Amino acid sequence: MQRKELGKTGIKVSKLCFGSLTMGPLQRNLSPEEGASLIRYGYERGINFLDSAELYETYPHINKALKHIDRSDYVIASKCYAYSKETAEESFEKALKGLGTEYIDIFMLHEQTSGLTIKGHYEAIEYFLKMKSQGKIRAFGISTHYVEAVRAALKYPEIEVIHPIVNMNGLGIQDGSMDEMYEALKSFKKSGGGIYGMKPLGGGNLLSNVDACFDYVLNLEILDSIAFGMQSFDEIDYNVKKINGETVDASLAERLRGHSKQLQIAEWCIGCGACVEKCDHKALELNRGKIHINRSKCVLCGYCASVCPEFCIKVY
């Protein structure tokens, strides 16, 4: 599989990034052993780049996989919500210990929205930059669903990598269109920044036009890599073939057609509304004690499940 340098970081990553969110507790809830087997299989198919986060709770899966992967050839990105030196240190040490590694290739602040949030988290950024100076982080960055955060990143040369929403309809972008996101990313790319996209299929909402989705992201010259959430061997095979420009077997495509995913809320939901507050995409509404889902807005991130006190939200 093609590898490309991520901006000017010196880090070479596969065009396909293994998104680990979907295998974790917020979605498929695979065991660490099951998840590790998928990660290893992806590596054997040419995927040397994996995206994770403290929120995803997939560190145990990655840890087990790394015991059978050449760490020097494997690129791990993770992220957290730290805002102070103390919270940054806690999250970073948790990542190192959980992953069983001495360094993390790319460490990011999760879900940044604007210059204000970047500024408000700058004490944490200073800690991560210190870790970079010690060789424990190779590159620093942010993930975002906002055009404004990409524009703000241009003012911070210490932000070397951005992980933004990129899909042909701009689904999930909170403050603009895909055209606006593209222009902001193009400026960041021109400045030497690295970019790997997320939600290329709009959280599953664009699966009816999957070929066009792949064509769109593969033709974007600004993208060094694109992350796809993968939770089965079939998904890995399908995505690898599409990224490599290979023909997808009809039987493989048919098997995946029957595996569309949705956000599911169990009947024991108590209607506390915590998930509604968590959802930046405005896909959830509390009405008469019941949660209602606007599936046209839901991008299947599963972040709402992380705040459910009753553990009744899953994506499957």
Rank of each mutant, 00 (worst) to 15 (best):
Y182M: 06
Q174Y: 01
R151M: 06
K155Y: 11
H145F: 08
G141K: 00
V147P: 00
G170D: 15
V166S: 05
F214S: 11
K199V: 13
M178L: 12
N167F: 05
N169Q: 04
M181V: 04
G170W: 08
L185A: 10
L201M: 15
I142K: 10
L218G: 05
A152Q: 06
I165Q: 01
G202H: 06
E183Q: 03
T144M: 07
F140M: 00
A149V: 12
M168W: 02
G204I: 02
Y216S: 14
A153H: 09
S143R: 00
G197F: 05
R151Y: 12
D175I: 10
G203M: 09
G192W: 11
H145R: 09
F214N: 09
S143F: 02
A153E: 00
G204T: 11
L220M: 15
T144G: 04
K199P: 04
V217G: 10
Y146I: 00
I162Y: 05
S177G: 09
D175G: 13
A153Y: 08
G203W: 04
L218I: 08
I173P: 02
E183H: 05
A212G: 12
D175E: 07
Y146L: 01
P200E: 13
L201N: 13
P157Q: 10
E148H: 10
G172P: 03
E158A: 11
G176H: 04
K199T: 06
G204W: 05
I165K: 04
S191P: 03
V166D: 03
S208C: 03
G192F: 14
N205K: 13
K155E: 15
G176D: 07
G194Q: 14
D175C: 13
G197Y: 01
I142Y: 06
K199S: 11
D179N: 11
A139L: 02
P157T: 05
A184P: 04
G192I: 07
H145L: 02
E160Q: 08
G172F: 03
E148V: 08
R151H: 10
D179A: 14
Y196G: 12
V217D: 01
N205I: 12
D215H: 02
G203E: 12
G141C: 10
G170Q: 07
I159W: 02
V166G: 01
K190A: 12
I165S: 15
I142H: 11
G202W: 06
E180R: 03
A153N: 12
L185V: 14
D211Q: 00
K186Q: 00
H145V: 07
Y156K: 15
P157R: 15
N209C: 07
Q174E: 10
L185K: 08
F140W: 04
M178N: 08
Y216I: 12
L220K: 14
G193R: 04
E160H: 01
A212V: 01
M198A: 15
G193T: 09
L201T: 14
Y196D: 07
D211Y: 05
L218E: 13
I165G: 11
Y182K: 11
E158Y: 14
Y216P: 08
E183A: 01
I195D: 00
G197S: 15
C213Q: 06
G141V: 06
K186I: 02
G141H: 08
I195W: 07
N205C: 07
E148I: 04
